[in-house]
Design a protein around this nucleic acid. Structure first.
Length: 922
RNA sequence: GGGCCGGUAGCUCAGCCUGGAAGAGCGCCCGGCUUGCACCCGGGAGGCCCCGGGUUCAAAUCCCGGCCGGUCCA
């Protein structure tokens, strides 16, 4: 990250530089200051100020990615750093971030804010990270941009009373690593002065660049960004980031980073995708030019192609074509790895959140395959990545089944989208013989059809379409809406002034945690607000929270007895809402008694939820996460992430497994652990219900089955759940399935509800018991069928009769007039009858007067073709309406009107008059 | 979370803009042609036009709300 130097020059003066004889210079291209040992160095050695030339800089033997990682960790371990295991690429411990974009993310916000100590200090880590903001540049820049990469880092956390190391030692370690371990000549290593800001913190930094390639960034986090400016913070953090893939590239000195990262696999992909090698000359020309390439600037991209063309002897068009195909190949390599990493960490592709990011990468990879004309399945390519990285990332082979299934499903959906797309294009072109930018935007934005695909389809239909090079930014611009205010904090269901009045109170002692079976307790009143909001020093009343509903009960004091209606938590303070105002005052001793039946049912549903989540993970896979949950007295509900709708069999297996855990009588225990310890022991799946912002967290563990950070009250043993019945399964949105269920005695109630339902139903169809229901329903269905066909026969019989009647219908003004009242007021079959009549007699005016049921009757008028030529149905309706005191209208051969029921008898007479006058006018 | 597109016969869809009698193709059933199959020809069955409300004499069509699916963007 680059920024204007906000720091004094002195911030960058490091003892080590003085000792070694570094000098501070200014880049003659970009103007930035840098430190070097080399008196002749006049540029900062970073892209885009210089070309890549690190291929001519000596270094140690080529390192594969894994070797570079081990070299780094080994070196820093020998220098007193403790190696830390990397975290998932999905930042489940962060609520403000979907993906792990850097190693420091691992320690935010709890460690960086000072709440929790780091797991070790100093430490070394190599963290797989994902950044999608430059996804469109991947491939084009031959390796400068990757969506997934490993960020190796050494971190030191300097507390005011316990400093570890700061700028001098950091620079010293970096220099030593690059010279001694990487074998890079010291006089070619440049430390460029820079400034870093992110996540509300800031500080000076050095970017370490060699031969055009930035190999590391050394950040010294020492400020907090406030409205007033930069304020020093007590915890100063050394935050470094070394590009593992770049270290590998540096030592291999291949024309692209992909050649260094994927020896073997690159060739395999090339083969499968049918991308013939662009040739050494072209690739090296690209290498030379890529350093100066600004992918955001179309002019820069054009001049990049031109330079490659000049250096390799190709035409600009040939060079562009060759490099674009190479870029697509590299993109597919990059994206398939990212897809594997994201899915392995349990992301479910969907249209929201991190699921959307996964879909984005998958879609983009599929688009590249399409444009390369490759026939291969994306899942097969991802599978090759799973195998390729299995030694480095064991989570990939571990979750292979899920990864491949999810990719295949997305691939099918994409194909479906494309099918729909080509049809839409055909429709548009069929309609207007053209396809303009507006259409392209609509096709992409609303239907997901890539513009290239739409243009291709249009070409096939003989319509030429130009896709603007800035198409995606045109689309993006249309989405720009005014920034929405982010919702703040937890919603509190108490009046504002009550919340305000609670300030300064100590945390309420939670008797419900000390003993979840406690039904009665004594405590003292600490504060009363508005006579009915009572805070005690301790309570057994559970407040609404953690997806569990509050307790109810009674509170007895010197002032008498009051019912507790609701209980809420504000920070650590628990507030009881009473049904009436009481004359309580601080110091009063009270006796509290909770509604035990209610509480016990809530506990059963809560423990059942933990059991069920474990069962869902066991049956469906580790990608299952809780997306939401609610436990009430009546039922519980658990939303889980999953990419497909659940089958009946899966639901049955989840239910059976959950009930087995109930029968096994497993112990359920709760204890408060240090955050680091809890994460170390159970992993991040403890954060199913959200991430508590606390140093110590309460872990509820179902022995050997499930462990989650949880505030709720739980049974001591799974056996007490009594039994679990899933009552409803529903896909509530893309990637999320909702389970509803009941536990314990509620299962019996649920069973009774169902059997009552069966009884009711069988009574309606005439059975005496539920057993007969099925047979009865079959009978009813058969009977319905017979009645339908019989009704149909009668209807056609009725229209035959009317046809007969119309034969003798009186003639008015040269037209036949038939007025009748049908036996049913349903309009649909009537339309059929009218149609039959008017198609039989061309000169017929058919008027159906609805059997009167209320004050108003509907009259339908239909004309045969010749009758319609003589009389307009609309005018006829107007005249009739006028004469009979109704309203109506129509057009051509059809009209409708509503008249007072009383006038129904006069329709025939008035119709004759109206037709007479209409025909005589002509 | 927001924007946009869609929901009509078993399937794929037209009709909606501009309100006025629910359509096509495929599939299905019956018949003809044929040694038989396919093709072809003739006939037929099959619709809560997603749900609820509103406007209107009249709503698949216009308006509002909801549900479902798709899709783009955070």
């Amino acid at each position: 990250m680059r920024g204007l130097a906000k720091a004094e020059a002195s911030e960058y003066e490091v003892e080590f530089f003085r000792e070694k004889g570094f000098t501070r210079k200014r880049c003659r291209v970009g103007g930035e200051y840098f430190w070097t040992l080399n008196p002749d160095m006049d540029t900062c050695q970073d892209a885009p100020c210089v070309e890549y030339w690190f291929d001519r800089i000596p270094s140690r033997d080529p390192l594969r990615v894994g070797e570079a990682r081990r070299l780094f960790i080994g070196f820093f371990e020998r220098r007193g750093h403790t190696p830390i295991k990397p975290r998932p690429v999905v930042a489940r411990w962060r609520e403000d971030l979907y993906l792990t974009i850097a190693s420091i993310v691992v320690f935010q916000p709890h460690v960086t804010s000072g709440l929790v100590p780091p797991p070790a200090n100093p430490l070394v880590i190599s963290q797989p990270s994902i950044r999608l903001e430059d996804i469109d540049n991947v491939g084009l820049t031959i390796g400068r941009h990757l969506t997934s990469f490993e960020m190796a880092a050494h971190h030191a956390f300097n507390y005011p009373d316990k400093p570890v190391y700061w700028k001098d030692e950091t620079v010293r370690l970096a220099f030593e690593f690059f010279t001694k371990e990487m074998g890079i000549p010291g006089d070619l290593i440049v430390f460029k002065e820079s400034w870093w800001e992110g996540g509300g913190n800031a500080g000076p930094s050095f970017e370490v660049a060699v031969g055009g390639l930035e190999l590391a960034t050394l950040v010294f986090m020492q400020y907090r960004v406030t409205e007033r400016g930069y304020e020093p913070i007590p915890l100063r953090i050394v935050d470094t980031g070394y590009g593992v893939e770049r270290m590998s590239w540096f030592t291999w000195k291949t024309p692209t980073a992909f050649h260094a990262i994927y020896p073997g696999l690159l060739e395999k992909f090339r083969d499968i995708l049918g991308v013939e090698e662009a040739g050494e000359e072209v690739l090296w020309a690209a290498f030379r030019a890529a350093g100066r390439l600004d992918p955001e600037d179309p002019r820069s991209v054009e001049s990049y192609y031109r330079r490659v063309a000049e250096a390799s002897g190709l035409s600009v068009g040939e060079a562009r074509e060759a490099l674009m195909r190479e870029a697509r190949l590299y993109s597919v390599l990059d994206h398939t790895k990212t897809i594997a990493l994201m899915l392995a960490d349990g992301v479910v592709p969907s249209n929201t959140g991190e699921g959307y990011l996964a879909r984005l990468v998958i879609r983009r990879a599929l688009r590249q395959l399409l444009m390369l004309g490759a026939e291969t399945r994306l899942a097969d390519l991802v599978d090759l990545q799973v195998e390729y990285w299995s030694g480095d990332f064991p989570q990939l082979p571990e979750h292979r089944d899920y990864i491949l299934d999810a990719v295949s499903l997305e691939e099918e959906r994409f194909k479906e989208t494309l099918r729909r797309g080509s049809k839409l294009v055909r429709q548009i072109i069929g309609r207007k013989k053209a396809l303009d930018l507006e259409d392209l935007v609509l096709l992409y934005d609303s239907h997901g059809i890539p513009p290239e695909v739409a243009a291709e389809e249009a070409r096939r239909l003989g319509v030429s379409v130009e896709v603007p090079h800035n198409f995606y930014s045109i689309v993006a611009a249309r989405h720009q809406a005014p920034e929405k205010v982010r919702r703040i904090g937890e919603r509190v269901e108490l009046p504002d002034h009550v919340v305000k009045a609670l300030e300064g109170l100590p945390e309420t002692r939670r008797l419900f945690h000390e003993d979840p079976y406690l039904r009665e307790f004594r405590a003292r009143v600490l504060r009363v607000v508005d006579g009915r909001y009572v805070v005690l020093d301790a309570t057994a009343f559970y407040p609404k929270g953690g997806g569990q509903d509050y307790d109810t009960g009674i509170l007895q004091g010197p002032w008498g007895e009051a019912r507790v209606l609701r209980v809420y938590k504000v920070g650590g303070v628990i507030v009881h809402v009473l049904d009436r105002d009481v004359k309580a005052s601080p110091g009063d001793e009270v006796l509290g008694r909770i509604d035990w039946i209610r509480r016990y049912r809530l506990m059963r549903h809560h423990t059942a939820t933990h059991i069920l989540l474990g069962a869902a993970r066991a049956v469906l896979g580790d990608h299952v996460w809780q997306a939401g949950a609610e436990k009430t007295v009546e039922k519980a509900r658990l939303d889980i992430t999953h990419h497909r709708p659940l089958t009946r069999d899966e639901v049955r297996r989840i239910e059976e497994l959950a009930n087995r855990v109930v029968d096994e009588r497993r112990r359920v225990s709760a204890r408060v652990l240090d955050r680091n310890e809890a994460e170390e022991r159970y992993g991040f799946k403890i954060y199913q219900g959200g991430v508590p912002m606390e140093a110590r967290i309460r872990i509820v563990e179902v022995e050997g089955w499930d462990a989650e950070a949880c505030f709720g009250t739980h049974l001591a043993n799974t056996g007490e759940v009594g039994g679990i019945k899933i009552t409803r399964v529903e896909r509530i949105q893309d990637g999320v399935v909702r389970l509803e269920y009941v536990a314990g005695t509620r299962v019996a109630e649920e069973a009774r509800r169902l059997s009552d339902l069966v009884e009711e139903a069988s009574k309606i169809v005439g059975g005496r018991s539920g057993e007969e229901l099925l047979a009865r329903i079959e009978g009813v269905a058969r009977e319905l069928e017979e009645l339908r066909s019989s009704l149909k026969r009668y209807r056609s019989l009725y229209s035959e009769l009317l046809i007969e009647k119309a034969r003798e219908a009186p003639r008015v003004g040269g037209l036949r007039l038939l007025v009748f009242t049908p036996p049913e007021s349903d309009r649909r079959p009537l339309q059929e009858v009218l149609r039959t009549l008017t198609s039989t007699y061309e000169d017929l005016v058919a008027i159906a007067v609805e059997p009167a049921e209320g004050d108003w009757a509907t009259v339908e008028i239909a004309l045969g073709s010749r009758a319609a030529g003589a009389v307009d149905a609309g005018r006829l309706a107007k005249l009739l309406a006028e004469a009979l005191g109704g309203r109506g209208g129509g057009r051509g051969s059809r009209a409708t009107l509503r008249i007072p029921s009383k006038a129904a008898g006069a329709v025939g007479e008035e119709a004759a008059k109206a037709i007479e006058s209409l025909t005589s006018q002509q």
